[in-house]
Design a protein around this nucleic acid. Structure first.
Lengths: 218, 218
DNA sequence: CGCGGCATCAACCAATTGGTTGATTCAGCC
DNA sequence: GGCTGAATCAACCAATTGGTTGATGCCGCG
């Protein structure tokens, strides 16, 4: 049984060093290369693919300093821009908000783990994701299951997008401009957001969304 | 020349693994122990001090999930709660806001490095901080100098109080009611707050205030 | 004493947000 | 095909927020 060949993608040298060391302790897993952002990951995948040394799993963070972020990179990997069949992507990050999880899952990530996870959990996730299964951190799985049980209270992707822009300080008109929609549409979405979060103004919506880890701290 | 004895403090196993590996490559540096938050760091320092095996340097993150944060722990270490003379504290974190840097420096940290720093920079910082010198990442030093040149106008205690209530989702009238003042007073304070934060609406004020760590979780 | 900063308050108007009602289109599902 | 949810848009009005001008009183400091 050949080793699972892993590409590490994280902008922090410390984290890459830690992952190398941690994965070196896992039987059946080999770190074949590293990259410091999404762009470098795409290039490295292409290079290895061209050499006939394909990667079995991409283990990647979401935030990459100034470089291409993990969600964008995941989308492009899944679109076959770095070789086909595209390898599964396992996200390993500190961010646990609905917005982050949703963006990664929609981009095609096979798994989502948090950096505070113990090594055994990460090992399980690596093995599962490489085998084509879904690999979610317990808290992330609970969040998604919560959404399945109470779908009527979950924000739609568009609602989430608007809420995030709201939290950065934009007014309705600025949000409309940025999303190329009308102000009336923004207001309609806000009405829906307020209803789902059971609030009656924007600052309360932002506060509740932060408390519930729907959006990140700014 | 004996090795610099280092205590690692970070809530992420991956990061601790990375730091162990990275520091293992540095001549003259030994990782003698680890802790996952500030409280555990204090306990470990006390334990080692009582065994006659004092630590030369604490390498510590700022955010520790649910545990004691790095600033609080730094303050208590410098106050001698874990043995005297207290070892220098070198902060290694992803956070580079002025408020975070200032808080750590004011708490007594000897250095402040960012996790995206290459290994050689971290090695230099470890050696400098252990030798009792200041060790700042280049970007951090620039920020501190900028802060000294242009001291930021601080919010008054009352302004802060109003901003905090605002961030919980209260409107002007509710804030006024809670503080037993008029709505006109609330609005006046908000005008001052917006001016100091250079924003023109409440959500932007909250966003900027959170970014600058003027306020924290709602 | 004069000054500046802080807290408080008011009046007035402009601008934005919140609430409601109504509508259309599209995609997915049964 | 009918239904539902999501996205989009409009009109209209009520409520709140933002901006400006002006004022008073208290405290600490030089």
């Amino acid at each position: 049984m050949p080793d699972i060949r892993v590409l590490l993608v994280d902008d922090h040298p410390v984290v890459r060093a830690g992952l190398r060391a941690m994965l070196a302790d896992f039987d059946g897993v080999t770190v074949v290369s590293e990259a410091a952002d999404g762009g470098a990951a795409l290039a490295e995948l292409s290079r290895l693919h061209a050499l006939g040394e394909p990667v079995d799993l991409v283990l990647m963070d979401l935030q990459m300093g100034g470089g291409m972020d993990g969600v964008t990179a995941t989308g492009r990997i899944k679109a076959g821009e770095a070789g086909s069949p595209p390898p599964p992507v396992l996200i390993l990050t500190t961010y646990d908000t609905d917005a982050d999880i949703l963006a990664a899952v929609e981009a095609g990530a096979a798994g989502y783990m948090l950096k505070d996870a113990p090594p055994e959990q990460i090992r399980q996730a690596v093995v599962s994701a490489a085998a084509g299964q879904t690999a979610l951190a317990p808290g992330v799985a609970a969040k998604l299951m919560g959404h399945l049980r109470n779908p009527e209270t979950a924000l739609s992707p568009r609602e989430l997008q608007i809420l995030e822009l709201l939290a950065t300080g934009l007014g309705n008109r600025a949000i409309a401009r940025q999303l190329f929609i009308s102000e009336a549409t923004v207001k309609t979405h806000l009405v829906h957001i307020y209803g789902k979060l059971v609030v009656d103004n924007r600052t309360a919506a932002i506060s509740v969304a932060r408390q519930k880890r729907i959006i990140r701290d700014s």
